[in-house]
Design a protein around this nucleic acid. Structure first.
Lengths: 192, 192
DNA sequence: CCTTGCTATGCAACTCGTTGCATAGCAAGA
DNA sequence: TCTTGCTATGCAACGAGTTGCATAGCAAGG
């Protein structure tokens, strides 16, 4: 399991509280790894008692105190060990694909709305990714922040390549959902 | 949760035993929904006691008896209800993306082997899909079995569009993994 | 004033998924 | 003969993920 490792990576990129992590998991990291705040708090507690991360109590004004977590030595080692171990499974769960095959035994045309909704969601996410890419990586400000003559920045470039993966995924999904819609339309309008 | 629905769809496509289902989940259906035999047996038992599926004991010679399951009325209704309900989440777990971002804090070059292994796995799966497509959908035998002048066959065409989705996914992954390898190579050979 | 909503953390109960193990008959090969 | 491997089903224990709920201070708006 790798929620712990996703948290370690996120904390290495920037230390933060459980709450902040939960919000990151709704945004950037959440695009390839989902987690609720309950899971995060539970795992943080375990990681702390295992010595993987350090805590610092930070009093705040006008809002509750927070606990800022940062990665400790053993956490870095655990991450390194995981990085060097091969992973195989990549288990997949595509509800929509199950639905599409199931539609053959029900009313295929009834799925059109649903597929269109998913297409819209992927279109929105693609737009979100693309604006994030411009803001953080390819826009004028981002380019100014990055020194083109300096050494390559692995953290930045690896974040970018992961984002490009998200963009490629959304584009593929949109194209495929169009294919699905075309196929469904053939049964919705019989006699064509 | 939708393992039950995936099983219903599979049993509608063809009745079978828990063991047979487990093998289908290693092949066709397993490409977009994974499940082990334990899960399948457990869910089958629950579905049977809920009246969603019927069982028939089939004695076999030279091997243990098997229980052949088929979808009953309530199961069909449950599937229909699920098909008509919208689904949202599509929760994602891309271990490899976590690893890639994590590699910034370790040795990026050490990931090259791992990424190449994944690329190979996706290449193999793509080849598998493509040969299945020729065999079942676009090859001469498949075309002969399907009557081009007859009415469209939803079951067949929807299976095909799902398979095309798998093909598009694998192609996208291979292209992205090439992008990842190019990016990683920049850190592996510094001073380029 | 009261409600809504945000930051911030957490418990408890439940379901789902994974792993290891067990049984049992038969076939094929060393 | 002994081991390996396939069909076929299942239990038990554990770990991961989900859902509902609780607390608590502060800010903003009606």
């Amino acid at each position: 399991m790798a929620l712990e490792h996703a948290i370690l990576v996120s904390l290495l990129e920037k230390p933060g509280s459980g709450y902040e992590l939960a919000r990151r998991f709704e945004r950037s990291i959440g695009y390839f790894w989902t987690a609720t705040h309950q899971q995060i708090y539970r795992v943080l507690k375990r990681m702390e008692s295992d010595g993987w991360i350090d805590v610092r109590d930070i009093p705040q004004q006008g809002r509750p105190d927070k606990k800022e977590y940062s990665v400790a030595g053993p956490g870095r080692e655990a991450l390194a060990a995981w990085l060097h171990a091969p992973i195989e499974p990549e288990s997949v769960r595509h509800d929509l694909a199950v639905k599409i095959r199931g539609a053959a035994f029900d009313d295929p045309a009834a799925l059109i709305r649903e597929v269109e909704r998913h297409r819209q969601a992927h279109t929105d996410r693609l737009a979100h990714y693309l604006s994030g890419e411009v803001r953080d990586f390819t826009g004028p400000e981002a380019r100014a922040a990055a020194d083109p003559d300096g050494p390559p920045d692995p953290e930045r470039e690896l974040q970018h390549v992961v984002l490009r993966g998200g963009i490629a995924y959304e584009r593929m999904m949109i194209a495929w959902l169009d294919d699905v819609l075309t196929t469904l339309a053939r049964f919705g309008a019989p006699g064509s």
